[in-house]
Design a protein around this nucleic acid. Sequence first.
DNA 1: CTGCATCCGATAAGATACTG
DNA 2: CAGTATCTTATCGGATGCAG
Lengths: 113, 113
Amino acid sequence: MEPKQGQMCARFEKAVELLSKRWVALIVYSLLPGPRRFSDIEQNLPSLSGKVLSDRLKELEACGLVRRDVYPEMPVRIEYSLTDKGRALSPLFINITEWAHQWIDPDEEQIRQ
Amino acid sequence: MEPKQGQMCARFEKAVELLSKRWVALIVYSLLPGPRRFSDIEQNLPSLSGKVLSDRLKELEACGLVRRDVYPEMPVRIEYSLTDKGRALSPLFINITEWAHQWIDPDEEQIRQ
DNA sequence: CTGCATCCGATAAGATACTG
DNA sequence: CAGTATCTTATCGGATGCAG
């Protein structure tokens, strides 16, 4: 698939493409408070499998939103944290939260076809 | 898949789930300026197939972000437009645009593995 | 024109078991 | 703990053809 939608700003499209990948927003969100370990994120997102989390973290690292730090302790400790680029997304999450509180009914069944 | 991530706000999760579906953000964005016909949106998003656009519009209609108006002219004219709930997302897009301008390099190849 | 139905291949996600 | 390998299943998206 060649992304050739000329009418829109290329940066905007790329940003949307990035953020609209499943789980990405939720993972970034769960890293906002600070560094987290793999298993912490897993606990925070119980319906996200380890494999997918692993994939996403690698992608997020590759595009510079997440940093992976290895502390050679015993046993080794690995922490994931947001880069400046990643943290710069926080206003977005505030907006989503506000929008959700105004417009989303938590009991109403959402579409998932 | 049962959404049982207890640690996070249910509304927030639903909102993210909604918005992180592929094409949704781009479709909403292209409706921000005003009502559009099916083929207008198609032209704006050349790499989006008619079937997927049709699917997404139905989903967006079902969750109340988009309204579908039929004008029984000859030939019939059908227009899609944002509801208040949909228009309420516009601050979000401003944020994304700002973030993209600061952090996304349009030439750099993005991850799409 | 504006879609919808169907088929089908490509991806993505999930479960489970296993490694350093 | 932090993943990886493998397999199976589910979902997505593109093409085509058809209907109002």
